[in-house]
Simulated assay, not measured.
Amino acid sequence: MARSFAHGNHSHTQNKIKNSGGRTGRDQARRTLSQNFMVDPDAVARVVEAAGPHDLVLEPGAGEGVLTRALAETCGRVVGYEVDPLLAGKLAARTRDDSRIRIVRGDFLAAHAPREPFAVVGNIPYSVTSKIVDWCLRAPTLTSATLTVQLEYARKRTGDFGRWSMLTVGTWPWYSWELLDRLDRAVFRPIPAVDSAILRIERRAQTPDLPGYRDFVDYGFTGLGGSLHATMRSRYPATRVDAAFTAAGVAPDTVVAYVHPDRWPILFEHLA
């Protein structure tokens, strides 16, 4: 995306940099939009392989189109969303003759989910990771989301720290969360301050009907009493709580974040 001024007269650019604290307008836009482009072909190939083939893919933050074009080689249709008008215009012009690719000049978060099954794949801006993940989880026809995110975010959501987040537990009956691969920061330009990871969220083949489950999880994470067992005893009879924890194989003194997501539906079944 950056122009080269290695040759010729570029004093006008130097003046812009001096007047903007050392950054050009494009540099400032990149920072505002959290633009870190994937430039390593091997990293791109790993993301495409992790995503797998799909009939329809939506790509948040298409950027310069490196991942967009790679996805088009394995997927039927790719709709790339790019909020930066300059980048969107350039990418639309470069791909106008490729019937597999459509570029939307706008914010992915404002898009409506397709009525047909689709996947989301993207090297997403770190600053809107949670918003994009929430969008994916609300989309009724989403089959999977394969996203490059901050390594810490991926580890937190997939239990890699040995602890589980409320979001993961609350969606576990319907979605699996998996950290598939780690990406060194050097595969991006500009180079970010942290390493990244490929996070895959996949809708389960069987999605149970559990009304009230997420409220149950939210209450469990309030931390009343220090342990999940103590929290539940503040709402349910002690004998029922004891029986539920025995059935789920969870020790009474287990801190809520250390209860595996597989155990929560069993607790819910016995208590709620």
Rank of each mutant, 00 (worst) to 15 (best):
R77W: 07
H260K: 14
V104S: 01
E178M: 11
L183T: 13
P252D: 07
A205P: 07
D209S: 02
F188T: 10
K90S: 04
S227D: 01
G223P: 00
G159F: 01
D55M: 11
F5S: 13
P190T: 12
F245D: 00
K16Q: 15
V39K: 11
V128Q: 04
R46V: 13
R214N: 09
S165Y: 11
P261H: 10
M166D: 05
A111E: 00
S227M: 08
D218V: 11
P125G: 10
T239W: 11
T231Q: 05
M1I: 14
A29C: 12
A238D: 10
W264Q: 05
D84H: 01
T32V: 15
R189K: 15
S99W: 04
V79T: 08
R263K: 15
R185F: 08
G65E: 04
T246M: 08
R163T: 15
A257Q: 14
L137W: 02
L183E: 12
R214P: 06
R77H: 09
R185W: 03
L147I: 07
F188P: 02
T24W: 08
A272Y: 08
F216D: 01
V78G: 04
C75F: 03
R115L: 12
D42K: 13
H260P: 04
M166I: 15
L199G: 01
S196Q: 11
P125C: 09
V255P: 00
R163N: 09
M166S: 13
S11F: 09
V66H: 13
L91I: 06
K131G: 03
R214E: 11
N15D: 09
M1K: 11
V250C: 00
P261G: 14
F161V: 09
Y213K: 00
G61I: 04
T254L: 06
G8S: 10
I266Q: 06
P211D: 03
T171G: 10
A70G: 05
V217C: 09
P85D: 06
L199W: 03
A93C: 07
T231M: 07
T246L: 12
Y126Q: 10
H10T: 14
R102W: 02
G170Y: 01
I124F: 03
R23I: 05
A197I: 12
G21Q: 01
W177H: 14
N123I: 03
A145W: 05
F221W: 04
T158W: 05
L228H: 00
W172D: 08
L179C: 15
P117W: 08
H12I: 13
G106Q: 04
R200Y: 07
G76R: 03
Y153W: 11
E202P: 07
V133H: 03
Y236R: 04
R155E: 14
S234Q: 15
A88P: 06
P252E: 06
V194Q: 09
V47T: 08
G65P: 00
W264D: 00
V121C: 12
Y236V: 09
A257N: 09
G212P: 01
H12K: 07
D97G: 08
G162C: 08
A111W: 06
D184L: 13
E59H: 08
V57Q: 02
N36G: 09
I132W: 05
R240S: 13
T32H: 13
P114A: 08
G25D: 14
K156E: 12
A247C: 01
R96C: 05
D160N: 10
G25C: 14
A145E: 06
P53G: 07
A50E: 06
N15A: 13
R46M: 12
F245Q: 07
G89P: 00
K90C: 04
A92K: 05
A186E: 11
E269M: 05
